[in-house]
């Protein structure tokens, strides 16, 4: 079991999360489980990005100023070993976006429940015309 195998199975995990999320959105009747499905798809994409940045046998891409000042030569070593940190920045943004979408969706859920007294999607979207 080496690092690239971890990367492969991590991609598989991400794909599974996305598939489960799509399944939940399409087939689950409960509105809260549908919302969890949206969250799962976001998590899956985040995991893809994180795995892209992962470098087998690498180090966390954080260097302290103190360490750098002690021996500037360490920076070359650091740059060789650190994982690719651009995807991590993208993931941070996406986590925040996903959280705000989730919050709005949950707020709508409470309002819809107050009106229909049900969490079932079939019940709520019953009289929907195309």
């Amino acid at each position: 079991m080496n690092g690239s195998e971890v990367q492969f199975w991590s991609f598989v995990t991400a794909a599974l999360l996305m598939i489960i999320g799509i399944y939940a959105i399409i087939f689950m009747d409960n509105i809260i489980k549908k919302i969890i499905g949206v969250m799962l798809i976001g998590d899956g994409v985040n995991l893809v990005l994180i795995t892209e940045g992962f470098k087998p046998g690498g180090i966390v891409p954080i260097i302290s100023e103190k360490l750098y000042n002690q021996s500037p030569g360490i920076f070359q070593e650091f740059a060789d070993q650190a994982s690719y940190s651009l995807p991590f920045a993208l993931v941070l943004t996406n986590i925040v976006i996903g959280a705000s979408t989730l919050a709005v969706l949950l707020g709508i859920t409470i309002k819809l429940y107050q009106h229909y007294n049900s969490l079932s999607v079939h019940e709520i979207f019953k009289e929907e015309k195309i």
Partner: peptide, 13 residues
């Protein structure tokens, strides 16, 4: 609410 719910779910996907 219903339109926004659908919009956000599909928008998330």
């Amino acid at each position: 609410y219903k339109a926004a719910f659908k919009y956000l779910v599909f928008g998330g996907v």
